[in-house]
């Protein structure tokens, strides 16, 4: 065996500055590659794209009659689909990320490199975000293509706005998933919690609020704000606002929101969504950085 000394290497192997700056990118690329290579990713992406394209074509046969109204149907169906699938994608991918790497010991391998925990966390976050954005874009691209060819362009802006909202939603859900991941002891527990959180966001929260409203005559302002606090509902209301134009259609609570918040309504709802995109991820990062047990 020859000597193990690296060619041209000085004896002290300080990592070059540029490499340190690139650590986040290198980790992100690796995470992205792993995500894209996993069959889960393809299952989600293909299922989402197919469903989105089918919804777009099913909702459209009346477009000659209905014009932009049929786009409203496409959009409403897409929003419902996004509400269900996109959070599940983000939550499960996020919940698996750190917990699974910690459990397998791979995280220790990663952190034994000249990489700090902040870089590791945001590298993983970045890589998974790009993977999720790609999956969501494939779905919206497929639906958009069908819509664009078969229906009117009056609402192209609305369609693209919904896409951007879905991007924000999926990254928000990734953040929540990663928050679960840094706290969970085991990857399987993280996945279980993620599925429960998904149920809570998609079904239990709304059902609870509906039940409360029916049982207690909850005031509409409380009902509205409690609903908007749910990121998936914030997404739906923002999306609805962008293709219907007004939340008046949502009955007394919608009318309340329009009256009380006026022009601030959409910024408030989108703001809630953006906060969900930022806060859980930052919380997960702080926890990951301070609770060093790997």
């Amino acid at each position: 065996m020859t000597a193990i000394v690296a060619p041209n290497a000085e004896r002290v192997a300080d990592v070059p500055e540029r490499a340190q700056r690139r650590a986040i990118v290198a980790i992100a690329r690796k995470e992205l590659g792993d995500a894209v290579r996993s069959r889960w990713f393809w299952m989600w992406a293909i299922a989402f794209a197919l469903l989105a394209a089918v919804l777009a074509s099913v909702a459209l046969p009346g477009s000659r009659i209905a014009g932009s109204a049929s786009f409203g149907r496409t959009a409403a169906s897409l929003v419902a689909l996004v509400q269900i699938i996109v959070p599940l994608m983000g939550l499960t991918l996020g919940a698996q990320s750190i917990a699974a790497q910690r459990e397998s010991g791979a995280l220790r391998f990663l952190l034994s490199h000249p990489v700090n925990r902040t870089e590791a966390f945001w590298g993983i976050h970045l890589g998974l975000s790009v993977a999720l954005l790609a999956a969501a874009s494939a779905g919206f691209g497929a639906a958009g293509l069908v819509t664009a060819i078969r229906s009117g362009g009056a609402q192209a802006g609305a369609f693209l706005r919904i896409t951007v909202l879905a991007w924000v939603l999926v990254i928000a859900m990734l953040g929540v998933g990663m928050l679960i991941s840094v706290f969970a002891r085991r990857a399987s527990a993280a996945l279980g919690i993620a599925v429960f959180v998904w149920l809570a966001f998609v079904f239990l929260g709304d059902l609870g609020l509906m039940g409360t409203a029916v049982a207690t005559r909850m005031p509409v302002d409380a009902l509205f704000f409690a609903t908007v606090a749910n990121p998936i509902e914030a997404f739906r209301l923002a999306a609805l606002g962008s293709f219907v134009g007004s939340l008046d259609i949502l009955g007394p609570s919608g009318t309340y929101a329009v009256d009380a918040l006026g022009p601030a309504l959409m910024p408030v709802i989108v703001g809630v969504l953006v906060l969900w995109m930022i806060l859980p991820a930052v919380g997960a990062w702080i926890r990951f950085r301070t609770a060093k047990d790997v």
Partner: peptide, 9 residues
């Protein structure tokens, strides 16, 4: 007021 939830899952 629960019209707010129309068409939700």
């Amino acid at each position: 007021e629960i019209m707010l939830f129309s068409e939700t899952p």
